[in-house]
Amino acid sequence: MSDRTLPREYRTTGGQAALVAGVVVIAAAAALFPLWTEEDMPASVRWIGSIAVLALFAWLVAGAARSSTTADLRGIRVRGVMRVRRMSWREIQDIRVEANPGASMQQGAPRVFTYAYGANGKRTQLIHLDGNTVDLEGELAFLHAAWVELRGADWTESARVTRRIDRGEARRMAVMGGLTWGMTAFFPLIVLSLLPLFGDVSEPLATLLSPGVLFGVGCPAAWIIGSVVTYRRLV
């Protein structure tokens, strides 16, 4: 099966590339604006700064355009903006889809990302292998089948690494659970902070109900409690 369908390459789509280019153009313009509007700036500094800014952003665009995930008979290669990572099929311990914590705060962001876990339990994001770019369910099924076929008949799962992977995922989910608890606690804390406006309260209680104490202590406490409860429920 795999020798007929590999290599498989996942790259940015045309729409995503245009979006990245647009963001980079806006950022470059914002960086160049003070260089060319400051009247007292020496011409040499203006030109050197402009060249450096344009070179940096051109490098970012080129790196984003080259970024990809490639699966072939030897394993998986992930080319990012800064570095290239390679994993053989044999050293991969698992391939998982995990939620994108920032999806709710970024319009159009992928709701999930795909990660490959190496022999040490560390994860590597498989760039452009998400629900926005490909048929994620189908591609994930294909990669799992290729992994099972090409990792070798004597491959064995490491219970120690699997526990490390599960605990790492539980920690990330716990952080998100804690944030949910913190945001949920925000509105009751607002109500409590308004109580002194509607009646007389003792001085110690008024201090406890001050916004600085409520939000400085209450929200972090809710986040910590929520994180611990979520983690305990998952492990």
Rank of each mutant, 00 (worst) to 15 (best):
D135F: 12
G131V: 08
A99W: 04
E139A: 10
W89C: 08
K122W: 10
Q107I: 15
A109Y: 10
F113L: 02
Q93K: 11
P110R: 02
S88A: 12
G131F: 02
R96Q: 06
P110W: 00
V112R: 06
R90F: 10
M105T: 09
N120L: 14
S88Q: 09
G138L: 11
G102L: 15
Y115L: 12
Y115H: 13
E91L: 13
A109G: 08
D135Q: 14
I95V: 12
N120C: 05
T114S: 04
G118T: 06
R90W: 06
Q106R: 15
I95F: 06
I127D: 01
A116F: 06
V134W: 05
D130F: 05
N120D: 15
A99M: 09
L126G: 04
R123M: 05
A103D: 03
D94I: 06
G118W: 03
R90I: 07
G138C: 11
G102P: 01
R86Q: 11
V134S: 03
G138K: 12
I92E: 00
L129E: 02
M105L: 15
S104E: 09
V112M: 01
S104F: 13
R123K: 15
R90P: 02
T114H: 08
W89R: 10
G102K: 14
S88V: 01
V97L: 02
V112S: 09
T114V: 07
E137C: 01
E137D: 12
G102V: 14
M105N: 06
D135L: 12
A119K: 14
T114R: 02
N120E: 14
V97M: 08
L129A: 08
L129M: 04
R86L: 11
G108D: 06
I92G: 00
Q125M: 14
N100F: 02
E91T: 13
S88G: 15
R123D: 03
R111L: 05
G102C: 01
N132S: 13
S104D: 10
A103V: 08
R96L: 00
A116T: 07
G118P: 04
Y115W: 15
V134M: 11
Y115R: 10
R85Y: 13
N100Q: 06
Q125L: 13
G102D: 00
M87N: 06
I92W: 05
G108A: 08
D94E: 11
L129H: 03
G108K: 07
A116G: 02
T133G: 05
M87C: 11
N120H: 15
A119C: 07
A103Q: 07
R86H: 13
G118E: 00
V134K: 01
V134I: 13
E91R: 14
P101Y: 08
S88H: 09
A119L: 10
Q93M: 11
D135G: 13
T124H: 11
R96W: 05
Q107R: 15
D130P: 09
M87R: 14
E91K: 14
A116C: 07
D135P: 09
A119G: 10
A103Y: 02
R111S: 08
D130N: 12
R90S: 09
G108Y: 07
S104Q: 12
S88L: 11
